[in-house]
Every structure is written in structure tokens, then in C-alpha cells.
Design a protein around this nucleic acid. Sequence first.
DNA 1: ATAACAATTGAACAATTGTTCAACTGTTAT
DNA 2: ATAACAGTTGAACAATTGTTCAATTGTTAT
Lengths: 119, 119
Amino acid sequence: MTEAENFSDCTVLHEDTVKAVQAQMPDEPQFYDLADLYKVFGDTTRIKILWALDIHEMCVCDLAVLLNVTKSAISHQLRILRQENLVKPRREGKEVFYSLADDHVRSIFEKGLEHINEL
Amino acid sequence: MTEAENFSDCTVLHEDTVKAVQAQMPDEPQFYDLADLYKVFGDTTRIKILWALDIHEMCVCDLAVLLNVTKSAISHQLRILRQENLVKPRREGKEVFYSLADDHVRSIFEKGLEHINEL
DNA sequence: ATAACAATTGAACAATTGTTCAACTGTTAT
DNA sequence: ATAACAGTTGAACAATTGTTCAATTGTTAT
């Protein structure tokens, strides 16, 4: 970021608008949290996992078969989903069944579908 | 993806569940479109742009100052946002003012915030 | 104890992404 | 016409990401 860029003619012209918007913007951490959440939805494997778990709880192995990737890949992605509090595990013997942590996932999906289906 | 992985003991056990879920899953393109949409929200610069435009329409130069990155970076990101039909441009002389294309952005944000504010 | 299987983890790798720089287009004013 | 500024574009680069492989942990049954 150069100084020249920071003080172009255009900016001086719209100084009031920029300052007003600046005052209404949330602080940095909020943006990072939001971005991290959406980043999770920005991968087809993870979207498929979430979609599947929304239909029925499943173990790692089943998800691997369903999505045609290794158990390892599924496990890595489930860790990310756990970290974002989107899924929760339930151990039953040797298997670990995963399900959605709450119904935010469903409503976030709905909003996304609304958008892409309107084009 | 190895064959061994595809036909583990576990899978045979839950064959019915997997098949039922498989039948209810949307087809591949739908997942790609969804992922592409969310990918857009998965970057702080883009989130900030969208948030800012939700408050007030702005030109490229103003956004650059507000977010403290180069006009080039803003322009690149705006192209992505245009491609996903999230923002629309309006030329006025030398400047191009951008605004939100519809109010999906706002409702998608709301769902995201609901989730992160509940932890 | 040991074998068998589900799941997790870390390292390595290729692929994708976001930024900047430099060159270019478009518009306005002199 | 030419200068000045807003915006766009493509190339290059560093950083991040998603996958697989190999090794490890956890659980159950023999």
C-alpha cells in the first residue's frame, strides 16, 4: 500500500462517505470469524459431508465411500468442521458417528441455494 | 481412492444408510455452485467489500482506501464478486460505483453471524 | 496378548488463491 | 492532441489449501 494510493483525488472527494462507512464497519476479528466460517462451506467435499450428515448421521468410513475419497481425507475435513462447531462426533465401538451440531448449517445452505437458484 | 477403501466391513454394515443418503444427495454441479458462492465469502477482503457496499455504494478507489489495499486488489476481487452476481457496477464519469446486486448478501451474512455469535 | 478394523495424525505434494507490480483502457479536462 | 486520473488486466510470487501416504491410536474380539 503506497501513500499515493491512500490520498488520491477521488478519496478527498468522497471523504465523508468513506469515513461514515468506516465508522459502521465491525472490527477486524468479526470479519476473520465470518470468513473462517464461510471458508468451511467453500469446498465441495465439506459441503457434501454437511449435506449428507443433514440427511443422516454417518461414520467416517461411510462418508469415505459415499464421497469416494480416503478415510483420511474425510477425517481431516471433519476436524475442520468440528473446529467450527458444525458437526459433533459420537463414538460407538470402533466407529465414530458424526452429525450436525445445530441447524445453522441447514439455514445457511438455504440462503445459498436461494441465491444460486435465482440466476 | 483404492478398492480396498470402497468395500470395507463397515460399509457393508451400513449399506442401506449410505444408499439412502446417496439417493437424496443433489447432483455434482449443485455442490460446485454452492461451494463457489461460499468461497466468495471466505475471504476477509471480499467480506469487507460486501459489508461496506451494504452500507453505501462506493467506487473502487474509495474501497482501496477504506480497506487499505491497492486499487488493483480491489478490482480483482470485484471481478469475482461480479461473476457471482453479488455486486453491480455503475459508471459515472471516470469512476465506477459498486453496489450490492440484491439483498441475498445481507441475509447470508445474518445467518453466518447468528452462528458465530452463539459459541 | 494379538489380530483386525475404524479413525486420527503429520509430512509431503500438487493445486489454488490473493496480492502486488507494471502495462493498459476509458473518460474528462485543458 | 495530450495530460491526468479511475479502473482493469495479466504475469509473477508467496501463502494457503486439500489430498494422499504412512504411521499411530483406540476399540473389540479371539
